[in-house]
Design a protein around this nucleic acid. Structure first.
Length: 447
RNA sequence: GCGGGCGUAGUGAAACGAUUAUCACGCUAGCCUUCCAAGCUGGAGUUGCGGGUUUGAUUCCCGCCGCCCGCACCA
């Protein structure tokens, strides 16, 4: 619909109270954003729509809300303390370009380089005189860990070290046994949760797109191995149904079949779902077939039996997993980009947000502010609508056109105006539609 | 993290080594206004942070923070 620039969108978000830069009065903190009053309402509406569609309206999905801090053994079992999240990097001393040390070694004929320690990598680079792709000397190997570390408890030593979770999936894997024991779900079933995750990105960019603290919504859907392709396709279709809830144009959604070399360490197949942003076509969600990598590893590491026991008495097994992931902030950014509409015919900008997720549902105004009888009736209607469909706001500032423009910019789908005909004729109020500008008249009880 | 550019009200801009930093829109109070940013009269609000040079710094210099572009990275 629109191809709004990030600058314009960022500006509107700030001006109207959707999103502010994190810690702004102290000069900001890169990669963090704060949701203002309208932004948090929009975010919650999206999250709730997701929960409703995928958890409440299905009988095979179970909700969960696990802790952000986890036992560090979780991250060893999941592979996040190794290559990928803790990358060994070297720098070209001339060009200052950075390269993955393990990739460079493999390019130079060293096998399984990612399993080497950094000391071993340094040694090989020195012994064999390995240069950068541009033929220059290299710096020492340094680890760049994408996980934020922290310490749990009063003593700051290696034993107290933990991490802020870089993904929310592990909370569902480690609770697999608990849910099976307490609810005895039949396979297939899913665990769903939404929440914060943290990644210490090298360079945050593009507004809400690449950030250091973000919200994910995802589920782990446990299946029998033989059914994985069928389940994968099911969620692929569901993904598009979800995009419609957000009002996203499916023509702007693109699938990227992630080649093996680029896939996560746990994944046997991954499809990224990308949206055409003004700054490029970028990932907003994905579906990954994680096999039984996670449950198997947790079973090995913890000694707990991560097994599903079929009720027909056949052999227990470790289920496989399909994992659909939705980046909440990225989805929200796509939703705003899509909704942003320049209506030059009417000299206005409005957010064509779907009614279910718009932060404000109704605005109520007296046609004129200086007529007490109009104001009084408008107040009654305002109070009547309060809480009926979510957020309702009152606006009597300036003139009616100004109020419409203001509500347009925050995406309020309906404006209710009380005028003289309301009082003198039939009690009907006007209901103005954000997108069509059309007005209908009806009694307030019919709204 | 590297290289380049940039940082003045909420937004977009202007100006200056020196009196109280300007303008538009927006916001706000009052008047007015019988449905799409009209008008009138008021009001609030700005030099990112820290240091240096200087009689005097928003302006010049340095550091930090942040933003943009490119590279790299991106489970």
């Amino acid at each position: 619909m629109s191809n709004v620039s990030l600058d314009e969108l960022t500006s509107l978000c700030k001006r109207r109270g959707f999103i502010y830069q994190g810690s702004e009065i102290y000069g900001g903190l890169a990669g963090t954003w704060d949701y203002g009053p309208l932004g948090v309402q929009l975010k919650r509406n999206i999250e709730q729509a997701w929960w409703k569609m995928f958890v409440e309206q299905r009988d095979d999905m179970y909700g969960l809300d696990s802790a952000i801090l986890m036992n560090p053994k979780v991250w060893q079992a999941s592979g996040h303390t190794g290559a990928g999240f803790a990358d060994p990097l070297v720098e070209d001393l001339e060009t200052k370009k950075r390269h993955r040390a393990d990739h460079l070694l493999e390019d130079n004929g060293v096998e399984n380089a990612e399993e080497l320690t950094h000391e071993q990598m340094n040694k090989i680079i020195k012994e064999r005189g390995i240069k950068s792709p541009d033929g220059n000397d290299l710096s020492e190997v340094r680890v760049f860990n994408l996980m934020f570390d922290t310490h749990v408890g009063p003593v700051r030593d290696d034993n107290s070290m933990s991490y802020l979770r870089p993904e929310i999936a592990q909370g569902m894997f480690v609770n697999f046994k608990n849910v099976v024991d307490s609810l005895q779900p039949d396979l297939p079933f899913g665990l769903a949760q939404s929440g914060k995750a943290f990644r210490n990105e090298i360079s945050p960019r593009e507004f809400l797109f690449r950030v250091r603290e973000f919200n994910l919504m995802e589920f782990e859907y446990f299946i029998e191995e033989s059914t994985w392709e069928e389940r994968f396709e099911h969620f692929r279709a569901e993904f598009y149904r979800w995009c419609e809830v957000l009002g996203l144009d499916v023509k702007k959604m693109h699938e990227l079949e992630v080649p093996e070399a680029d896939r996560a360490h746990y994944s046997k197949r991954t499809v990224d779902f990308e949206y055409e942003f003004s700054f490029g076509t970028k990932e907003v969600g994905a579906i990954a077939y994680r096999t039984n990598f996670d449950l198997s590893n947790h079973m090995d590491q913890s000694g707990e039996k991560m097994l599903y026991r079929p009720k027909d008495g056949s052999d227990p097994f470790v289920p496989h997993v399909i994992e659909p992931t939705f980046g909440l902030d990225r989805m929200l950014l796509a939703t705003l980009s899509e909704a942003y509409t320049e209506d030059t015919d009417n000299d206005r900008v409005y957010l064509a947000l779907p009614e279910d997720i718009a932060p404000v549902k109704y605005c109520v105004s007296p046609l004129l502010k200086n007529k007490p009888e109009l104001v009084a009736r408008a107040r009654e209607v305002y109070e009547m609508l309060q809480g009926k469909y979510g957020r309702v706001v009152w606006d009597d500032n300036g003139n009616i056109g100004k109020r419409y423009r203001r509500q347009d910019e925050i995406g309020t789908p309906w404006c209710v105006v009380i005028d003289f005909d309301t009082l003198e004729k039939d009690g009907k109020v006007s209901l103005r539609n954000r997108d069509t500008l059309e007005q209908t008249r009806l009694v307030p009880e019919e709204i």
